[in-house]
Design a protein around this nucleic acid. Structure first.
Lengths: 155, 155
DNA sequence: GCATTAAATGAAAATTACTTTCATCTACTA
DNA sequence: TAGTAGATGAAAGTAATTTTCATTTAATGC
């Protein structure tokens, strides 16, 4: 069901990539986190178990993992991309905590009928969609009770 | 119904901003385009009617317009942000042509029930969502008939 | 119209995020 | 265990954006 660190390792080898300690370190950081991580954060963490790792290696490993489909990009309104272990292989989207960064996956976006309607109305050939929900996870919600009154979106 | 260039100009003045020829040039470029534009493209176009305009001014004007809510950001999977005249003031989303960049707005995303379900299931307080459809507009679709066979999303 | 002034501008430098280059190293294969 | 293709990291390079600051100018009041 859920992709594991071991499966990632196996896939890397299968695809002909070498399994270096640096790559292991990056994989570990990604597989252990429930949040979306920037390259800089991944670098910091990987550095703890593997001092001497270079930021370049982080970028290269992220590219590789993205191409292999093991990580997702979180977009969050025009800022720099951050990355996330793709725990479930099927089509899904993310519910992102804007405070701590925790991400919950959800499948069944039910956008098919909307997609069909838009396609008919506009003549567009729709190829993909991007959907993300942003808010506060239960923990962060408790820590900021005043925020609970703010229910408005961006309009 | 639709926001006009004149309304933008009026709002700027109302908010205490000065109406400089540079700002006029940027407003014009944005109001005339049906696509999302990068700062670099806006710079190029504004340069035609106002040679000597600096790229810094583009960035500053875009920030201002974004804060005032006159432009939307288009995200498109982790790349650099590009901007778009917010023609309709209400909550809406974008259908973006991945070839020519033309954007069609649509309201009624019908995400309320999904949002409620997710909120119940996860305990998240959902504050906003990000939704974009990407595909080929009718014109570009005709120009690349071979693309019509590619209907798969990112899975 | 004209002086005043706070805000806006643009050149240049600084910053940030990322990519490329290249000499060295190392995980894997035979 | 040697050979080798692929991986690494330091350093340089690139691109996008921001900051700094001296100069200019749009709007206001006279």
């Amino acid at each position: 069901m859920e992709t594991t660190l071991e499966e990632m390792v196996a896939a890397l080898k299968r695809e002909g990539y070498k399994l270096t300690p640096q790559r292991r370190a990056v994989l570990r950081v990604i597989a252990l986190s429930q949040s979306h991580l920037t390259p800089a954060i991944i670098y910091q963490r990987a550095h703890r178990t593997h001092p001497g790792i270079g930021l370049v290696t982080i970028y290269r490993t992220l590219n590789m993992l993205h191409e292999l489909g093991f990580i997702c990009e979180v977009c969050g309104e025009g800022h720099r991309p951050s990355y996330l272990f793709r725990r479930i292989p099927q089509h899904h989207h993310h519910l992102v905590c804007s405070d701590c960064g925790t991400v919950v996956n959800f499948t069944h976006c039910n956008l098919d009928s909307l997609e069909r309607r838009l396609s008919e109305e506009t003549g567009f050939l729709i190829q993909e969609h991007l959907l993300e929900f942003h808010g506060l996870c239960p923990k962060c919600r408790k820590q900021m009770p005043e925020q609970n009154f703010f229910l408005g979106g961006k309009g």
